[in-house]
Design a protein around this nucleic acid. Structure first.
Lengths: 218, 218, 218, 218
DNA sequence: ACCTCCGGGACGTCCCGTTTAT
DNA sequence: ATAAACGGGACGTCCCGGAGGT
């Protein structure tokens, strides 16, 4: 909800004239609408949300929403883009911790799971992703970037001897991401994500854990 | 729902005359509608399908559809039930082959993947499952039965020494099913299921393969 | 509900052959349907009733209803005819009591009020009468017969000196019937006819009572 | 509903520019829709009217109608409220004439009858009243206010010696209103209200006239 | 002759995403 | 940025035939 103030600051302090002030308000409004849309999409899904819902959540009128976003699809696209900008940031934050590659993978997945559990924008993005067939506009191809990051880490792990030289980082990453996605969905359906973290840990243990332990033993 | 079918059977055997014909027509119509609904749901998703669409696919009128299914939701539920009744049947067929447990797991997943690739009802079930929040009616809890079957096979594999005694069959099964489900979804989105089989094999290799090889080594 | 058995007997005992038996069943069925329709119309009004409702009340199928009555309007017409055949019967019963004319008027109104309060067919008829604009088929013109009976009694009362010679029986009857109808409707709306009898008595007291007393005084 | 109207006034005085104009248009549209709905309900009854009918009568689209009234029921309620707000206004106008109480009663009924004969809103209100069981929403209780006004006038007449001291104003008023309502309905059904005025005069003569003459004689 | 099952269309309501006037 | 108006469907439901049993 407050997760967006940063971006706002970036765009405004440039020109402190009246125009900038207006733009500042506009940017805040856009951000407000985006949060409201995320909330709505996360809870009700794309077809379940009406533009009036979003407007009501912001306390504004439908016209205001349409002023900032040309249509409902544009809202969905904006939320999805926000979603896809967040995932790499999580990975970046983890990589600044300078963990060993497999530990980094583990940490990235855990942090991502936490975000899925706690942040509406993430939930909204994931849900919109899943419903993208119901949305007219094209959305960024999913999972590619995330899988790439994980792949790279597995590659490093193999170079570092944490994985057997015969292992295939791309395959490992694809399966890990698939399993994470599946676990996330099943957790959502079965427990409203209450057990998402433990399911994620379980996933890592089964797919990555044994391999790393094996590497440790070697 | 099912009592109708039973009644049909009873009366067909007892009285193979006109009445059964009528009922037979109804049964045929019902299954025709179900197929049409599956086709539509698989292609367009629950919100994207109108009852008129389903009717048109059957060549009948909406009235006929509503005679057999009270609701659009009822259609979705029926398709989903069909979906969840087919998965165990695949497993049953495989188990009649008397494979070793891990081989059976592999075969079940492959056969299931083939079904996901080729059968509309399966695809529809998977899609409805993922869209279940957009459907008013409650759907069967996903994959419980399937996970149970896999768990049991892993248990047998452990008893047979194909898995280390420290492995946890439930966790393995959960992760495997999650990964399969995730791979299936990603394959759908990215390649319209063209690479589903290979992704499934990859999943098995990563999650089950190494463990079994490990067991072989031990 | 049981008010119709008489009529049934009339039509059947004529020919005790198999044909008559079938017809007997048919007549009973028709009568059953009629009662059910009256019940439904009284409670829900013509547009509020579906043929399926009537069928369900009889325990039969819609087809059976349509076999006996060509359409929903025919049901309404039949109920209304039954209604218009009952009102004169009430008057006839009262006239067999050989009361003085004004007393007869009073008794007829009271008995009619009781019928309105207690009998579904009467309530249904009254309601269908009121809704006749919503029914395609033409219904018998309302109030004419009833007003005629009352008029005749007032005429007798005037001849007998119970009413002043200047009084106009037609006007009295018209106003009395109007007031009864109005009281009946208002009682229906306000108290679901719980106070219908007392409102009817009040109506008679105000319109007929003083006149008769005045005549008594003269 | 009414707060919308107030707001209009406020903003019209404060800012007599475009904004007020917009609201004025809305007010005009609302009343246009209300008139159209009254026309439709009066002619076809609640179930016989479709919202599209109302829209067509206004020359606008269904969307416009639904913008101003959430429901078909809401339309009926609004028309009925208009109806029940007009009756007292008729009485007010008459009372400004300072007639003797019984004359006032007579005049009020006559004027009301004229309104029933000539004004669509009144006719619609009466019809909706009679069909209120077919309308989901609760309507104002019928004729309570009207009966109260008449009662009060009868009370004054009794005090003024125009009615015998033994007469009961409430009963008189109830019967008079019932009779008027009944006469109005019967006149509608039998002669499309052509004889409504004369029936109303007849009603007054029978119920009020004799009593007043009697009082004159006393 | 009486009744059942199945199917056929036709609307009616409501709502929703979206532009015009302001 | 708002208030008002626009069209376009979707769902559900209803009234009703028609083929056929008992």
């Amino acid at each position: 909800m407050t997760d967006r103030d940063e971006r706002v600051n970036i765009e405004t302090t440039v020109d402190p004239s009246g125009r900038a002030l207006k733009q500042k308000r506009a940017v805040r409004t856009r951000s407000l609408i985006l949060s409201a849309a995320a909330e709505a999409f996360a809870n009700q899904g794309f077809p379940g949300v009406t533009v009036a819902d979003v407007a009501k959540l912001t306390g504004m009128t439908k016209g205001a929403v349409y002023f900032h976003y040309t249509n409902k699809e544009a809202l969905a696209v904006a939320v999805t883009e926000e979603f896809y900008s967040r995932l790499p940031r999580i990975a970046d934050r983890v990589q600044e911790m300078n963990l060993a590659p497999l530990q980094a993978v583990r940490e990235i997945l855990i942090q991502t799971a936490i975000a899925f559990r706690d942040e509406k924008v993430i939930q909204a993005g994931a849900r919109l992703q899943i419903e993208h067939h119901l949305i007219g506009a094209p959305l960024p191809t999913p999972f590619l970037g995330f899988t790439g990051i994980i792949t790279e880490l597995f590659r490093q792990a193999r170079s570092a001897g944490q994985l057997p030289s015969t292992s295939r980082p791309e395959a490992l990453a694809r399966v890990l991401v698939s399993a994470f996605f599946g676990a996330q969905h099943i957790s959502w359906v079965q427990s409203n994500r209450a057990d998402l973290i433990s399911r994620t840990e379980e996933t890592i243990d089964v797919i990555v854990g044994p391999l790393s332990r094996r590497a440790d033993e070697g």
